[in-house]
């Protein structure tokens, strides 16, 4: 028996996502148009460049075509994942992306997973012990870390652990080939640590709040009154229900993780997608910058889509009414 409301819901979300993607693509296209520079500007700065060469550059980048025509070419290329060749590095953009996306996914994915696992446990526990010392201290620490600028704490960690103590390399990726998985872990330990700490802070706060609300529900009171052991109530009844918003948040976090990559990759010189974006943008490497932006936006959209679908399965109201 097909669950029509659910199917309707999912299709609706798919359509929404696609339209949002198109709109985002359009907006970014116009933003790049509005930039006060063109990708060939840096290449044709030298006075030795002859006008014919400059015209060839313009033609190569397709800027001799009218704007609307370029827009449609852009849309077609983006939707077919045909990204062209990077201006700054001279290699196909897809190569760059293929090299870097797994790294960023690894770093941020791993950090989100760890932080959420830890966050759920810690948040549940301290919410149960509301008013205890652990509660107060965890809340204060989480609050402070939540409000810290990530790049700053990253710089401090770099200063203390990489520079002063020398435990970790200054660049967050193994320098020498061949490298093992352990080498990767060693090099990326600091950014992982920073990400986990910051993410953990928010997760703990969220889980705690969610738990507090759940604990306020009557059925918890009933369970305790019934004499069910505290541990069981804590984990089997309260936490499992309080986890719902956190679980959704987890999927969303994965989605948004990529977007925030930019800053930390800059601080730790981690060769991932974020650093690629910044470097491309500053070197007016339009193909790479546009492609990177597109991929990042796509990941976020897909992440949200998955979250919506999961939500659809979980929330009975949607299952029933759509």
């Amino acid at each position: 028996m097909v669950n029509w409301p659910l199917v309707k819901y999912i299709t609706g979300k798919l359509l929404q996502t696609f339209i949002t993607l198109l709109i985002i693509l359009t907006i970014t296209f116009w933003l790049f148009e509005a930039l006060p520079a063109r990708p060939y500007d840096l290449l044709t700065q030298s006075p030795l460049i002859r006008p014919a060469q400059k015209e060839y550059m313009i033609h190569l980048f397709g800027f001799d075509k009218p704007v609307t025509e370029r827009f449609f070419i852009y849309m077609k290329n983006m939707l077919t994942f045909d990204f062209g060749i990077s201006v700054a590095w001279g290699v196909p953009v897809s190569d760059l992306l293929n090299e870097r996306i797994p790294r960023t996914l690894f770093l941020f994915g791993l950090s989100v997973i760890i932080s959420y696992l830890l966050g759920i446990l810690i948040g549940a526990y301290i919410a149960w012990r509301r008013g205890g010392i652990a509660d107060g201290m965890s809340v204060v620490t989480s609050l402070v870390f939540y409000n810290m600028p990530s790049f700053w704490i990253g710089l401090i960690f770099l200063f203390v652990f990489s520079f002063k103590l020398g435990w970790f390399p200054l660049t967050a990726w193994p320098q020498f080939v061949p490298y093992t998985f352990f080498d990767i872990l060693h090099a990326t330990f600091l950014p992982l640590l920073v990400l986990v700490l910051l993410s953990l802070a928010g997760t703990i706060l969220l889980m705690r709040t969610s738990m507090l609300e759940t604990i306020g529900e009557n059925y918890i009171l009933t369970a305790v009154a019934k004499g069910i052991p505290e541990r069981t109530v804590l984990f089997k009844h309260a936490a499992r229900n309080a986890m719902l918003p956190v679980a959704t948040a987890f999927v969303i976090s994965l989605a948004f993780a990529m977007g925030g990559a930019v800053v930390l990759e800059q601080v730790f010189t981690f060769p991932g997608v974020g650093l690629l974006y910044i470097n491309a943008l500053f070197q007016l490497d339009f193909p790479t910058a546009q492609a990177t932006l597109y991929i990042l936006a796509l990941m976020v959209l897909i992440g949200n889509l998955i979250a919506d679908i999961v939500y659809g399965f979980l929330d009975p109201r949607i299952r029933v009414t759509g």
């Binding site: 993410s199 918003p245 948040a249 948004f256 930390l264």
Partner: peptide, 18 residues
């Protein structure tokens, strides 16, 4: 509201768009 503002923070907004 605690879930909304993380949207403004950089990465993995925990409980971001819930």
């Amino acid at each position: 509201p605690t879930d909304i503002d993380p949207h403004l923070r950089e990465e993995a907004p925990p409980g971001g768009v819930v």
